[in-house]
């Protein structure tokens, strides 16, 4: 009985597209196209912004522009002092936040057990990341300019760098934790089960296998640090502190304020008079170029480290 039914039904074509299948397929194409469009729409603004800045700024960039101090309120001369100032702030800030952040993340990921102390620390990290940068700036004024008082109650490069360090700390902790968590648990178990201490496990296995991710996370903070204006304006960056008087001599990190690219950009774009139109774009191009350069180094380094690790 059953077999006869089957043989009759085999006369009906099998495995063909019905109207219902076609409908589902159309919906699939539409969904796919929509998502792809959204993904592509991320790239377009980036390219437009970069293109616009570079097209407008490139004509003003010259060797003199990069290596001379600004003159006539930014209308003439170059941006050397601001480049140096930005490098100072970024370098000092990361020199402080990277070790603290990485070590804290190692503690949180490798040692911490589930208890109230660690819950409080994790909560603090998350919330610290959500504080607006201007609030960090205000905190920096209170904590580093006045309370720590590096420079007799005046702004200083160190205060600005520390303010930014506090700001980048939670992000470094988060990215480092992620890099550590990507190391398979089985490696740790293998170590523990031959009697390795946690420190031996971390030093011999976990860190060597997560260092590329950790470094990438740290270096990506360069762009944030270099671009911030509000917090450094309050704590260590002046609109006008050229290196002219001391010639090529560099800033004193504690006693000096400095110029910075982000602040200088704001100043020439909105406050200064008689500035050629191309100058703000040129500054932006240099700022973006510096950041991209550092990020490219990071990516290259990451590729190199990745190529050595296999599992």
């Amino acid at each position: 009985m059953n077999s006869t039914e089957r043989s009759t039904s085999s006369a009906v074509p099998r495995f063909v597209e019905t109207e219902f299948v076609r409908k589902k397929q159309r919906a699939e194409w539409i969904a796919r196209g929509f998502f792809a469009f959204m993904a592509a729409s991320i790239v377009v603004p980036l390219l437009l912004i970069l293109g616009y800045i570079i097209v407008h700024g490139a004509p003003a960039i010259s060797w003199e522009f990069l290596t001379e101090n600004p003159r006539s309120g930014g209308a003439k001369g170059g941006i050397w002092a601001a480049i140096v100032g930005t490098i100072y702030i970024v370098a000092i800030s990361l020199a402080v936040s990277a070790p603290i952040g990485v070590l804290a993340a190692v503690y949180l990921n490798e040692y911490a057990k589930e208890n109230w102390f660690n819950r409080v620390v994790n909560l603090a990290v998350v919330n610290l990341a959500g504080v607006p940068s201007i609030v960090h700036g205000l905190f920096g004024v209170g904590a580093f300019v006045y309370f720590a008082n590096f420079n007799q109650g005046r702004k200083s490069i160190l205060a600005a760098a520390l303010t930014l360090a506090v700001m980048t700390l939670p992000v470094i902790i988060a990215s480092t934790k992620e890099a550590l968590a990507a190391v398979p648990r089985s490696f740790r178990e293998a170590c523990w089960n031959v009697g390795a201490t946690r420190w031996q496990t971390i030093w011999k296995i976990v860190l060597p296998n997560s260092i590329s991710g950790i470094l990438t996370g740290v270096i990506l903070q360069v762009s944030r640090t270099a671009g911030e204006t509000a917090p450094v304006m309050l704590t260590g960056v002046a609109t006008w502190k050229s290196l002219q008087d001391s010639g090529w001599f560099l800033y004193h990190p504690i006693k000096d304020q400095c110029m910075a690219l982000s602040m200088h950009l704001y100043y020439v774009a909105t406050q200064a008079n008689n500035v050629p139109e191309a100058v703000p774009y040129a500054i932006a191009t240099v700022l973006v170029g510096l950041v991209l350069l550092v990020n490219a180094t990071a990516i290259g380094f990451r590729v190199y480290l990745r190529s050595r690790k296999k599992w």
């Binding site: 398979p184 089985s186 490696f187 178990e189 293998a190 089960n193 031959v194 009697g195 690790k309």
Partner: peptide
């Protein structure tokens, strides 16, 4: 203790 008592796991877990 763990030096004297070794363990082998379900998935082989050689170190990298």
């Amino acid at each position: 203790l763990r030096k004297a008592i070794g363990m082998v796991f379900q998935r082989p877990n050689p170190l990298p």
